[in-house]
């Protein structure tokens, strides 16, 4: 079943891709192949392969329970949050939070997670700043 859904998703994406390719502007200075043909070929191959996957699906993989997906979703949110805070808040605070939270999600024990967060942020900052010479800020610039 998973494979059928996957095939269907790929099929829809491939059709959308081909449709987008039809909208590519054509240049007045074009070669015999042009800008659209190769994307058409890729889309075509993807459609054939997707149909084969739907026609002959493999056995379903093990899907974890819903709570795991909630955890994975949280991990994605943590990473996106890290992405947006890294610049304004400096290195130490976002890294402590993000690595601590990820650590907690892999192994849910509070103290090791906190230690991991603090240790990684300070340790990596030292490596990046002093060994590799990256231009990182430890804390928000406004603080000092």
């Amino acid at each position: 079943m998973s494979d059928r859904i996957f095939g269907l998703v790929i099929l829809i994406v491939a059709l959308g891709y081909i449709f987008s390719a039809t909208l590519i502007q054509t240049s007045f200075l074009s070669d015999p192949v042009g800008s659209k043909t190769f994307p058409y070929i890729i889309g075509g191959c993807a459609i054939v392969a997707a149909l084969v996957v739907m026609w002959k699906p493999e056995t379903d993989p093990y899907w974890p329970p819903a709570i795991t997906f909630v955890r994975l979703g949280l991990a994605v949110i943590v990473l996106v949050g890290y992405d947006y805070t890294l610049k304004p808040l400096g290195f130490i605070i976002p890294t402590t939070l993000a690595s601590g939270l990820l650590s907690y999600q892999i192994s849910p024990r509070r103290l090791p997670a906190v230690l991991t967060g603090v240790g990684l942020s300070v340790g990596l900052f030292a490596v990046f700043k002093f060994a590799l010479g990256l231009g990182l800020y430890a804390f928000p610039k406004a603080w000092f």
Binding site: A98, T116, L120, L124
Partner: peptide, 20 residues
Amino acid sequence: VPPWVLLPGVTMVSFVGIYS
């Protein structure tokens, strides 16, 4: 090195690497 230290560490290194 337990995975709950290793994996967050790897992630942070990847982020900073791509960001730099």
